[in-house]
Computed example of a mutant assay.
Amino acid sequence: MFSITVRDHIMIAHSLRGEVFGPAQKLHGATFLVDATFRRAELDADSIVVDIGLATRELGEVVAGLTYRNLDEEPELAGVNTSTEALARIIADRLAERVHAGKLGEGARELAAIQVTLHESHVAWASYERAL
């Protein structure tokens, strides 16, 4: 399996529901380093996984829709406990929509999977991988 990874970051505010989150149940800010990894079994006719420039642009647009926002107030996230794991899935799903819409080029339609990793710090991160 071949892969490429592009990187961006988000800065959000949110609160988390559940005793397990302790003080994070209150509104707080978080900054995440975001890695999006695109996978495919064989390289395309240009010997690439996907155009890195397009992948970078589309990841930037996806995270721009979340950054500097209080996620508790976003209608499309109503009822979602926006844990690191859940945010990784949201970003992966939004990238998948862009792949299916052709925004990463026609060759991207042959991608096998996308994995999104959110780094909370240098010692903790969470990932979500989905098939395409």
Rank of each mutant, 00 (worst) to 15 (best):
D35H: 15
S83H: 08
H119E: 01
Q25W: 02
A108D: 08
A45M: 11
P23D: 05
L95V: 03
H100Q: 13
S83W: 08
Y68C: 01
E120F: 04
A92H: 01
I90K: 04
Y68K: 01
D44Y: 08
L95G: 04
R94Q: 13
A41K: 14
A92S: 06
G65F: 08
R130D: 00
V62R: 02
V49P: 02
A41I: 06
M1P: 15
P75E: 12
R40Y: 07
A113Y: 00
V34H: 01
E74G: 00
V80W: 08
I4L: 15
A24C: 10
L33W: 05
K103N: 06
T5F: 02
A126P: 01
A101V: 09
T67K: 04
A96N: 11
S121N: 07
L111S: 06
R7P: 00
I12K: 04
L16N: 03
Y68D: 13
G102A: 01
V6P: 00
H119G: 01
M11Y: 08
V6I: 06
E61V: 02
R17W: 12
G107S: 15
L77I: 12
F32L: 04
R17P: 00
G60V: 01
R39F: 13
D46S: 14
A124N: 14
D44L: 11
I91E: 00
L71Y: 11
S83F: 08
E110W: 03
H14Q: 12
G29M: 05
T117M: 07
G79Q: 10
I48M: 11
S47M: 10
R98N: 10
V6M: 10
H122I: 06
G29Q: 05
P23E: 06
E120K: 02
M11R: 13
G79W: 14
A88L: 12
I52T: 13
S3V: 09
A126F: 01
D8G: 12
A108Q: 10
F2H: 15
A101H: 05
G22E: 12
R94G: 03
N70M: 06
Q25K: 10
D46F: 11
G79T: 09
S15E: 15
I52D: 11
V50H: 03
T37W: 00
D46H: 13
E19H: 10
E106R: 13
A126Y: 00
L95N: 03
A13S: 14
L104S: 04
T31E: 09
E106W: 02
V63P: 00
A24D: 15
D93Y: 00
V62N: 02
E74V: 15
R17N: 13
T82N: 14
S47C: 09
E97H: 11
A24G: 02
S47Q: 13
F32A: 00
L54H: 02
V34L: 10
H28F: 09
E76M: 08
K103T: 02
F2N: 15
A108C: 14
T117N: 04
D51R: 05
V80D: 06
G102P: 03
M11Q: 12
V80K: 09
V123W: 09
E120C: 04
E74F: 07
L43R: 10
